[in-house]
Amino acid sequence: MRRGEAARPAEGGPSPEALRLEGVRKVYGPEENRVVALDGVTLALPAGSFTAVMGPSGSGKSTLLQCAAGLDLPSAGRVFVDGAELAGRGEAALTRFRRRRIGFVFQQFNLLPTLTVLENTTLPLRLAGRRVDRDAARGVLARVGLGDRLGHLPAELSGGQQQRVAIARALVARPPLLFADEPTGALDTRSARDVLALLQEAVRADGRTVVMVTHDPVAAAHADAVLYLADGRIVGRQSAPTAETVAARLTHLADEVARQRTEVA
């Protein structure tokens, strides 16, 4: 493999890397008042992994997710999803790519209020012009505990149930990569635990790759590893996290960032 080239799929097989970023930089604003949200981020995540992304406010977590998912274009650097580079695609082609290979779960459930649970779940397939397998969609909804709620509207569901619909919607298209941005932020403790268990199952049972932005050490402890960001850079990685070790690392990181910013000022 040539230097700087992302890992490519073996013949007939999936890419060993679900996500790769090479020197990704994202800058907002004019030169005299620019904000560097990402500052040369390089990472590689293997297929079938669950990674949490954490850091102080303003560290670049959401920007990292948006650039990695193709929702925003980096100012510099390269992004590969499932071995395919995102750059060089028109907006229509990029949209088609995301619909085939990327799923999204957000803190705000983004369900259409006039559609039923089943209709919300199959909406991405209809938008992509793909055949809707209603039996398969019912199976996914049964797995997330909503097999008896197919005809309900979002307003008739609890917050935890709505988030489970959002997860089912993300899974029904069978994307290899799933991004979750604060997926438990609006949920109570029990609902949050159920949602995190579903994300774990997507990794363990289905071989999906999950990248989750969160501020919650308990949520991060469900991941295989945690990436820590500060001022747009990756400043650490932690394997086999626990809520206690994550909380301690975040406290130390916040103190260090505050100290450095005070010194600069």
Rank of each mutant, 00 (worst) to 15 (best):
E32K: 13
E32P: 05
N33C: 12
N33Y: 13
N33T: 14
N33D: 15
R34N: 13
V35P: 12
V36C: 10
V36D: 05
A37M: 06
A37C: 10
A37D: 05
L38H: 00
D39Q: 08
D39C: 13
D39S: 15
G40Q: 05
V41P: 05
V41F: 02
V41Q: 02
V41E: 05
V41C: 03
T42D: 15
T42E: 14
T42Y: 11
T42R: 07
A44R: 12
A44I: 08
A44Q: 09
A44E: 09
A44N: 04
A44M: 08
L45A: 12
L45M: 12
P46L: 09
P46M: 07
P46Y: 07
P46K: 14
A47W: 05
A47Y: 07
A47E: 10
G48S: 11
G48W: 06
G48R: 10
S49E: 12
F50S: 01
T51M: 13
A52N: 08
A52K: 01
A52T: 08
V53G: 01
V53Y: 04
V53N: 01
V53Q: 02
V53R: 00
M54K: 02
M54D: 07
M54T: 06
G55H: 04
G55Q: 03
P56L: 09
P56R: 04
S57V: 15
S57H: 11
S57K: 11
S57P: 12
G58M: 08
G58Y: 06
G58E: 09
S59C: 15
S59G: 13
S59L: 10
S59E: 06
G60D: 04
G60L: 03
G60H: 04
K61N: 05
K61M: 12
K61L: 08
K61C: 07
S62K: 05
S62L: 10
T63W: 04
T63D: 01
L64N: 03
L64E: 01
L64I: 14
L64T: 11
L64G: 02
L65A: 03
L65Q: 00
L65R: 00
Q66N: 15
Q66P: 00
Q66K: 12
Q66L: 10
C67Q: 01
C67R: 01
C67V: 15
C67T: 14
A68I: 02
A69V: 05
A69S: 15
A69Y: 01
G70N: 09
G70V: 12
G70Y: 05
G70R: 04
L71Y: 06
D72N: 11
D72E: 15
D72W: 02
L73M: 13
L73I: 11
L73T: 13
L73H: 13
L73F: 11
L73Q: 14
L73A: 14
L73C: 09
L73D: 11
P74N: 07
P74Q: 06
S75Q: 09
S75C: 08
A76K: 08
A76N: 10
A76F: 12
A76T: 00
G77Y: 06
R78L: 14
R78D: 09
R78M: 10
R78N: 12
V79I: 14
V79E: 04
V79P: 03
F80T: 07
F80H: 14
F80S: 15
F80N: 07
V81G: 01
V81M: 05
V81C: 05
D82Q: 08
D82C: 07
D82S: 13
G83T: 13
